[in-house]
C-alpha cells in the first residue's frame, strides 16, 4: 500500500518535504517510523531516544489528526493515508 509521509520543521530538512512509501502488507505508524529511521540515520537520531523510544515531544498526525504516540503508534494505516511528522519549534 502507498503511504505518504510529510515532514515539517527540522524533520523536513532531514527527510525532505514529502516521501511516498510503498509498503507490502500491513502498515502501522510505528512501522513507517521504523522504515524512515532505518533509511536515514539523521532522522533516527533526531526523532528517537538512544533507548529506541520516540522522543516524547514529536508530533505525529495521521490524515491531519494528531495521534498520541504513547498509545496509537500501532494504529493500522490504510492505502493512501498521510502521515505527518514534526517536532514543535519553540523559539521566539
Amino acid at each position: 500500500m502507498k503511504i505518504k509521509v510529510m515532514a515539517f520543521a527540522s524533520f523536513r530538512e532531514i527527510l525532505g518535504k514529502e516521501l511516498n512509501l510503498d509498503i507490502v502488507g500491513e502498515a502501522t505508524a510505528a512501522g513507517v517510523l521504523a522504515i524512515l529511521a532505518s533509511r536515514n540515520k539523521r532522522f533516527k537520531e533526531a526523532a528517537f531516544e538512544e533507548s529506541g523510544w520516540l522522543r516524547d515531544y514529536v508530533q505525529i498526525m495521521i490524515n491531519r489528526k494528531r495521534i498520541d504516540p504513547r498509545q496509537d503508534l500501532s494504529t493500522k494505516l490504510n492505502d493512501g493515508d498521510e502521515l505527518v511528522i514534526f517536532p514543535p519549534v519553540a523559539g521566539g
Partner: peptide, 10 residues
C-alpha cells in the same frame, strides 16, 4: 501562540 526556529514557524 507563535513560535519560530530558523526558517520555520508555527
Amino acid at each position: 501562540h507563535g513560535a519560530i526556529c530558523g526558517f520555520q514557524g508555527q
